[in-house]
């Protein structure tokens, strides 16, 4: 996974989303409606993981698309995949509104209190990351990158993986992750930090392996 996403590597459906966004940026309402049809269920799913309450999550979703309509011109196809861009906007909105609402986060991640033997019991969402079924996967990443991400997540310790999942999927803060996992704040902070660093190293290595393999032909 590289920092800039080469558009030629996108799936055809992803390029289609890019075209819809470009047209929405020029004021094309029909293209925007199609974009909404194709992406709103994914974004609402993401927002609802952070924001358990459907009514609140739908309010957030509304804000997200009003923003997307206004900001569509700033979408840069040379920099981001469309669904990555949209999902990032949705997550930011959801996290911002969490702060405003001061709501109690609702947990959806499979809660496992960190212990060395917790590995086999985990059935959390990232286990399905490498699934080949048609869905957002093809819009977010290339198949090879999805496999790499899955492998790299599996390479983390159970505690690291869970702390990242609680933060990323459920929108928990460091302090909330510490509370859920019943660990000192400092411990959790260092788990998360090391987990993110390990993911980066692992994913960057996978990209380099891919590139080397592609060169060999």
């Amino acid at each position: 996974m590289s920092s800039s996403t080469a558009e030629r590597d996108w799936s055809e459906r992803s390029r289609e989303l890019g075209r819809l966004l470009a047209r929405a940026g020029l004021g094309d309402r029909a293209a925007f409606a199609t974009l909404y049809e194709r992406t709103s269920a994914h974004l609402l799913g993401v927002v609802m993981r952070i924001h358990g309450d459907r009514a609140q999550a739908e309010d957030v979703l509304q804000e997200v698309y009003v923003n997307v309509w206004r900001a569509a011109q700033s979408f840069d196809a040379a920099q981001s995949q469309p669904l990555t861009w949209l999902t990032s906007i949705a997550r930011n909105r959801a996290i911002d509104s969490l702060r405003r609402a001061q709501t109690q986060p609702r947990l959806h991640s499979n809660i496992i209190i960190a212990s060395a033997d917790a590995d086999d019991k985990e059935t959390d969402v990232y286990d399905t990351v490498a699934d080949d079924a048609p869905g957002p996967q093809a819009l977010l990443t290339r198949a090879a990158d999805a496999r790499a991400l899955h492998a790299c997540m599996q390479g983390l310790s159970a505690a690291q993986r869970q702390s990242v999942a609680l933060a990323f999927f459920d929108g928990l803060s460091h302090a909330e992750v510490a509370e859920v996992m019943r660990q000192p704040l400092g411990t959790v902070k260092s788990w998360v930090r090391r987990a993110l660093l390990a993911l980066k190293v692992c994913l960057d290595a996978a990209v380099q392996r891919d590139a080397a393999a592609a060169e060999k032909g």
Partner: peptide
């Protein structure tokens, strides 16, 4: 974002 957003594919 490129690294982490693909995780949301499974939501």
């Amino acid at each position: 974002q490129d690294r982490l957003m693909p995780l949301t594919a499974s939501v």
